[in-house]
Amino acid sequence: MADRFGHALVIGASSGIGEALARRLAGEGTRVALVARRQERLEKIAREINAAAGEQRAFTFVHDVLNRDEPPLLLQRIAATLGGLDLVIYAAGILYRPEDGEFNTEKDLEVLEVNLLGAIAWLNPVAERFAALGHGTIVGIGSIAGDRGRAGAPAYNTSKAALATYLEALRNRVSRTGVVVVTIKPGFVKTPMTADLGKLPGAVSADRAARLIVKRMHRRAVTAYIPERWRLISWAVRAVPSWLFRRLGV
C-alpha cells in the first residue's frame, strides 16, 4: 500500500504557493521534488528544507514549463530520484494585467502557455502514470479569477477557467482508477505574483494558503476554495448578470 503523500512533485516551487506547499509537505515528512526555472532560488529552498529536516527531503530539477517536450522524461527521472511518486501539484503561474487599451497578444499567450499548456503538458503524463498504478493525487492551483472574465486580466482569467475545466475533465477520466484530482481556487494570497496589486482585501499568506490546501488534499476535495469563504463570494460574483458585471468595471 503506497503512502498517500510520501513522494511529491511541485511544479512552480520557487516562490508563492508552490514554495509554501513544498516546505509544508517536506515538514510533514514527504520527499519533495522542486521544479522551476530558477536554479539558485530552488537550491536555496531545498537547502533550507533539508537543514530543517535533518535529512535530504527536497530535490531540485530546473525546468521551464514552456518546454513542453520535457515532462515525460523528467517525470520518470523525478520518480526514480524520489523512489516513487504519490502527489503532483501544478503551481506554476504568471499574471499579466494589460493597461487600458493595451492588447498584447504575446503576453496573453505566454500566460496561457505557463498557466494552462504547461499544466496539460505535465498533468497528462502524470495522469497516465497514476491511472496505470491506480494511485495518486493531482492538484492544480487554479484561482477564483477563473470564475469570471474580468476586464483587468483576461488571459489570466481564461487560463484559470480553462485549467479548472481541464482538471474536471481529468477527474472524470481517471477517478475510477483510484486517482484523486483536486482543483484549488485560492482567493487573494500574498505572493510575489500579487505583490504589485496593492492592498488585497482578506488576503492570506502563502503559508496559510498552503496549510489549508494540504488539509483539503488530505480530504480528497474536488474543488477547494482557499480560504473557504471565497466559495460564497465566488457564487455571488457568478450570480451577477453580465450587463451589471460590465457596468461595475471590475
Binding site: 503506497a2 522524461l73 520518470q76 503524463p125 498504478l133
Partner: peptide, 12 residues
C-alpha cells in the same frame, strides 16, 4: 537517459 520508458509498461 534521453528518452522516457514506455508508460504502458508501468505497474504497481
Amino acid at each position: 537517459r534521453s528518452s522516457p520508458l514506455p508508460p504502458e509498461h508501468l505497474e504497481w
